[in-house]
């Protein structure tokens, strides 16, 4: 095959992939913006309640955590909690909805490769996560002043966490057969992991056994890395946190592509 033919073929493929990716992302953005009352408003209200109850009402009695005012201490964790639940929820509901209504077939019969389908849905989830993160951050400012210790660390942790939970949502979407299946993981896995992931406390306060056990919770690494980006304090070594997040991302990408290649839950 001549260089020219190879180049034309590559150019053709990359054009198809780019337009296809752009289409999926635009469709995803339109979807969650169209139903903003269901996608953007609830996290704003829920997180305001967290700040009101845990920050103002209870927080004043707690005083400081790791030498920081309690309201400021929990703020990064609450923002991260909103990002995690919304990225996961966005991808799982959108992908399962497409399967349920069968319009996922529009993409499956097209030349769009699996990796572009995955990238499109994940990007959609990341966009919603970031938007919700910005909304919750703006709400946080009504309750406590926020200083950012390191913007690059904060941004990279948000993006990586959103990517990871979008991938997890995608896997849930692949295997879900009914609406119950998309609610089970957030209720019985995601919520406990988030609440026990150091959002409201430092794991230094826990007895040794529970502290050690907490270290197997991946959410702990994300919350602490994000907290470090904001406050400069963390229960976990930053490099260790990034290594855990990136490792999980690579593993989930591999699993997503494997499940799609094997057509689990997508093709009869």
């Amino acid at each position: 095959m001549s260089k020219n033919v190879l180049y034309t073929s590559w150019a053709k493929h990359s054009k198809l992939w780019f337009i296809s990716f752009q289409t999926i992302v635009t469709k995803e953005l339109n979807r969650f913006l169209r139903i903003w009352l269901q996608t953007l408003l609830p996290p704003a209200i829920t997180m305001s309640l967290y700040f009101l109850i845990f920050g103002s009402v209870i927080g004043d009695r707690i005083g400081e955590m790791s030498g920081i005012n309690y309201m400021s201490y929990i703020a990064p964790g609450i923002i991260m909690m909103a990002i995690i639940t919304n990225t996961y929820g966005n991808v799982v509901s959108s992908f399962f909805g497409a399967k349920f209504q069968r319009h996922i077939e529009e993409i499956l019969v097209s030349p769009t490769p699996n990796i572009i389908i995955l990238a499109g849905y994940v990007t959609g989830g990341v966009c919603r996560g970031i938007l919700v993160g910005l909304i919750v951050t703006a709400i946080t400012l009504f309750f406590t002043p926020l200083k950012i210790y390191s913007l690059p660390i904060s941004i990279s942790v948000v993006v990586l966490t959103a990517v990871l939970f979008s991938l997890l949502g995608f896997i849930n979407g692949i295997f879900a057969k009914k609406f119950d299946d998309i609610a089970i993981v957030p209720t019985f896995v995601l919520t406990p992991l988030t609440y026990l992931g150091g959002v409201f406390y430092s794991i230094d306060l826990l007895p040794p056994f529970w502290k050690e056990l907490s270290l197997i919770n991946p959410v702990l690494y994300m919350v602490n890395a994000f907290r470090f980006g904001f406050l400069g304090v963390s229960d976990i070594d930053l490099m260790q946190a990034f290594a855990v997040i990136v490792t999980f991302i690579l593993l989930m990408i591999f699993l997503c592509l494997y499940f799609m290649k094997k057509s689990f839950g997508l093709r009869a």
């Binding site: 337009i19 339109n30 169209r34 319009h103």
Partner: peptide, 27 residues
Amino acid sequence: PQEVNFNQFETLDEILINQAGYYGIPR
């Protein structure tokens, strides 16, 4: 297909333009 399999919440032109996008056709 035999059964309806488009997004029931999208407009007709959205459905067609998105489908074209999956085949790499510019907007």
